[in-house]
Design a binder for these strands. Structure first.
Lengths: 336, 336
DNA sequence: CGAAAGTGTTGGAACGTTCCAACAAATCGT
DNA sequence: ACGATTTGTTGGAACGTTCCAACACTTTCG
């Protein structure tokens, strides 16, 4: 390890020019003569010079960095969204600081605070758990975008999400079109997204004049939760022939509950999940699902943020993306 | 958005003290009188003061930040490792910059370069794809640790990984103890980890005097690859009764190949995977696997890095962690 | 041919912190 | 009662960059 990292000054000395000129050359200005440029590059590579981002960000008061806060890395759908975000960010020549909230509002707040200290120029919140108040405060301080939840009317805050109510409706529509009537719903617990999906389920059931068949069973956005909810549905004695499960991970659990009871999917029970995580498509799962365009949500979310960075006063925008049905092997016709 | 972020100077002016004192107070020094401290805190909260990390890192020449480079966020095992790393890093009061290499060596290099510009104090490389040369160069520049690959004898570079050869051996041992003899191996492609697992497979087969039964089929660390390799094994006509698949994701694919041929797991074919990703334990997959202690690998890798940051000249260390067999429903006795 | 308009280049002042030597005031020990 | 210590506090010099006004030299052109 060198005793001291070389600075722009060392490069200037070695190349026999002023530090200002080195600064210009490093940033590729065209006002530098060919010879100077050559000498500078030569000196820089010889010394192993690397610009100091902290100094740079202090001097020009721009960090060229965005903060990304993700609820929880373990849910694979977030990884897919992040990939989208990162791609867009790279295109704009920005850099990313990615942190997780570990599904814990306190940690999440702390991490956001840290990011702001690093002078990030914008914040991407993927599936946050923050109270409206703090969200308000953050958006007042720094351009921000919320991904996968709809936030409306908060100044300085954009959002992008799929329409969960609509998605849940087409899930039920699909099952109805296969002839199912006794369609149960395994919920995703107490959170905004889960509730919207439940709402869509109820709406669609009512639309098809199946309101009296409506049946919700408590679940969660986990394997365990899906198993539990599905088990309750199957053991209810109400003769459900199909399950709409709140998300794909839970649908995997539901699959197991069905198998445990010696029943077959889709011959005896049809299952539809939600999210469109890559995993649900794996051959041995092959779960019919309502897919969100995850990568696109990431890229469009990021570009929404860049728009706001460009004009911080623009009115808050919300983008709704359409989820779409992907039919796989977990759903089939209702046996008469 | 405030026209200008308040600085330490503004706080000092409002509190009626010097900026030096504010600096001391903000860092919780005990050489500040109670009254001054109160006045400073009052002023800081009133102004909404937030320290500028760039300035701080410039002034005291420490960024309190670590860089984490992960091969690819989409493989869930990395997410589990990262969780471990983040926990440890938080404990030390450090911050994390997480970037992905998108499974692309060029991007990976670029991201590492960026992290070094940010003056990260250490680098965690999770499953990198870099040539030995660049690794060497990086380690010479900045303390670093490699996770999930064994690197030995590179100055300034520690590593932690599970013993893939040993793990593969116990996978085969398990199958042999169930009475299997014709045990095929679906490989993980051309990379160090995959080759070590293949080596362990061959060793164990030889130990059990089954060298003549050895059969490797080309696969990859993906669903697709596992399906392909397993299909080749099953269609080979060699009557394999068990498959040792290079990792869990590929094992999921293998499961499908078996099902497609109308065979049953584990009645007709036993399958053992590798990695111990949470997903493999989901009820409807329930894959027997060789589990790595993923979170522990993360935390211990991080603490290895902190040791090196504390003493950059210590000799390179490698920690080997033991993988362990988790028996689930994808493996069973060989039918006579 | 002399003023105007480029072309390269430069030193110094920011940027917002931390560190350090210096100091004033209060407390101490003898 | 007086130097020595302790307790708070301070201004200024770093840290490594970017920006700006100013420069010395061409070149252009009316």
């Amino acid at each position: 390890m060198a005793p001291n990292r070389p600075t722009i000054k060392d490069v200037a000395a070695l190349a026999g020019v002023s530090k200002s000129l080195v600064s210009l050359a490093m940033r590729g200005s065209d006002r530098v003569s060919a010879e100077s440029r050559a000498a500078i590059i030569e000196a820089a590579t010889q010394l192993g010079y690397r610009p100091n981002a902290a100094a740079r960000s202090l001097a020009d008061r721009r960090s060229h960095t965005l903060g990304v806060v993700v609820l929880d890395l373990l849910n694979p759908i977030y990884a897919e969204i992040i990939d989208g975000v990162q791609g867009e960010v790279r295109q704009h020549g920005y850099h990313t600081m990615l942190v997780t909230g570990n599904d814990n509002p306190v940690i999440e707040q702390g991490e956001v605070e840290k990011l702001l200290e690093f002078q990030v120029e914008g914040l991407v919140l993927i599936g946050h758990r923050m109270p409206a108040g703090s969200l308000d405060a953050i958006a007042g301080d720094c351009p921000a975008v919320v991904i996968s939840r709809a936030e409306r009317g908060i100044a300085g805050l954009d959002s992008i999400s799929n329409d969960d109510v609509f998605g849940a409706r087409i899930a039920v529509d699909h099952l109805v079109s296969l002839g199912h009537q006794s369609i149960a719903h395994v919920t995703g617990g107490i959170n905004e997204v889960a509730m919207l999906r439940t709402l869509g389920y109820e709406q669609s059931m009512a639309n098809h004049r199946l309101a009296d068949q409506t049946a919700c069973y408590d679940g969660a956005f986990t394997d365990e939760g899906g198993y539990r909810g599905a088990a309750a549905a199957l053991d209810s004695g109400r003769g459900h022939t199909a399950l709409f499960v709140a998300n794909d991970i839970a649908a995997v659990g539901a699959l197991a509950a069905v198998a445990d009871r010696g029943l077959d999917v889709p011959a005896d029970i049809s299952i539809v999940g939600y999210d469109g995580m890559a995993l649900a498509g794996l051959r041995s799962l092959s779960i019919t699902t309502i897919a969100q365009p995850l990568a696109r949500i990431g890229t469009e979310g990021a570009s929404l943020l860049f728009l706001r960075i460009g004009d911080p006063t623009r009115p808050p925008a919300h983008i709704g993306v359409e989820p779409r049905l992907i039919i796989r092997n977990s759903s089939g016709p209702c046996r008469p």
